[in-house]
Simulated assay, not measured.
Amino acid sequence: MNRFIRLLKDWTLPVSIALGAGVYLIFAYTPGLEQASAFFAPIMETILPMFMFFILFVTFCKVDFRKMIPVRWHLWIGGQQVLFVLLMVALILCFSLKGDNLILAEGILACIIGPCAAAAPVVTAKLGGNLESMTTYTFISNFITAVLIPVFFPLIEPRTTIDFAEAFFLILYKVTLVLIVPMGLAFIVKHFFSRFHYWVIKVKDLSYYLWGASLTIVTGTTVKNICHAETSISFLLLIAAMSLFLCFLQFAVGWRIGSSCGSIVESGQALGQKNTAFAIWIASVYLNPLSSVGPGCYILWQNIINSIELWRKGKAGKMRAS
């Protein structure tokens, strides 16, 4: 039993992905469970934001707010995100992409322009990176995204009319709900409810396991969207392959930048781990809805990379211990 529990702890993310995909497929394709699937779907959609709120609240309880200041790697990673977006938009416009080619490009763009994942500080802390530095960049990345979307999306989707101020403040409103509210609550708890704060932070890896649970729900939703995508299997495989390549590319560039700034873990997570739920939303609202399959696949790839990183760190730790 202890060996089984240790296996679950070491491979939380792959287990969460497999469980989410498996449970959805069972409920969706087993006769007699269709009604149960329809019943639980809205419940899962309601629970997921709660999971994200508690994940960030627990994470922010461990943050030293006095250390949340911009550092050099923030500039390089933010600049790289902007550069990737410029290159992708230029490719779409210069080659006048249409049809499936445009959908594929929009799926890639959604993964690039999307902000750093709100859960990135959780993985960064687990990998031994700087939690405060990663948390700071999460806010910077969301601000960059809020500026880029209303500027570039009307260029590639002329049918989409986006008012800059409206889109900017809509995105900032979502950032406030997702990031600032749990951070404010964590600040209050940390400074005025010390006993409860101690109880929260003493539970080892609480935010990590909450994130694993939320990943189960997200994976089920992702598999559902892919299964119901109205396109050919070959095109879905192409989107999945391109999102895999893009995921590895963004992590690799982040690691390369981080190696020169002494922040490999933080830079890799900052550029590679994306808020895919947000990317799916912007793709569905502002671009061709089918392009949302791109960030849907991306979430699987980025968490596989995270799993490998965590496994390597755990293995290195065991070798040092021996």
Rank of each mutant, 00 (worst) to 15 (best):
S133G: 06
L83F: 13
T124R: 00
I308L: 15
L300M: 15
F152V: 11
S259K: 15
K318C: 01
G268C: 07
K67P: 03
A229P: 01
A105G: 03
K174E: 09
A283Y: 00
L7V: 14
I69G: 00
G79I: 12
I171F: 00
I149S: 02
S243C: 11
F57E: 02
I257R: 03
G129P: 02
L210N: 11
I149M: 12
I239C: 04
T145Y: 08
P42K: 04
S232G: 15
Y24L: 10
Q35Y: 11
I257C: 04
A321L: 14
R320F: 13
L7S: 13
T12D: 10
V151P: 09
M68N: 05
T276W: 12
C247F: 02
A186R: 10
V181P: 03
I171S: 01
L91F: 10
Q81M: 09
V181G: 05
A36H: 13
S37P: 02
Q80A: 14
F193L: 11
V63W: 05
S284K: 01
I77M: 14
L86F: 01
S234F: 03
K318F: 00
T145M: 13
N142F: 05
A279F: 04
E166N: 13
C261H: 07
F95H: 05
R159P: 07
C297Y: 14
R312F: 08
G294E: 01
L13D: 11
L25W: 04
A240H: 00
V82N: 01
G212V: 08
N142T: 10
L104R: 08
S96I: 06
R66Y: 01
E157G: 03
L177H: 03
L148I: 06
V181R: 01
D100R: 05
N306L: 08
A241S: 07
V285K: 13
I144Q: 07
I304D: 07
R195I: 11
P295T: 02
W255D: 01
K174L: 09
F53R: 13
T161H: 12
T221V: 08
F235R: 03
A240Q: 01
M44W: 09
P158N: 08
W211F: 12
F4M: 12
F152R: 02
V58L: 07
S194N: 12
C227G: 02
A41S: 13
L13V: 14
I304V: 15
M242Y: 02
F51A: 09
L177Y: 14
V253A: 12
A167R: 08
L93Q: 11
A146W: 06
Y286C: 06
I5M: 10
E266C: 08
V203Q: 08
I149N: 09
V71T: 15
A38H: 12
E34P: 07
L287G: 04
R3D: 13
I47G: 01
V218T: 10
I47S: 02
Y173A: 15
M50W: 06
T46L: 14
T221P: 02
L238I: 13
I26Y: 15
S232I: 14
K126M: 06
C116W: 05
I17V: 15
I55E: 06
I299L: 13
T221N: 05
T145W: 09
I47H: 05
T46K: 11
M52L: 15
V151Y: 06
S307D: 03
E34N: 09
L206P: 08
F60P: 03
L97E: 05
G314M: 09
Y173C: 15
K174R: 14
I171G: 00
F169N: 01
F278I: 14
K126G: 07
I304W: 05
F164A: 09
L206D: 07
A118C: 00
F153L: 08
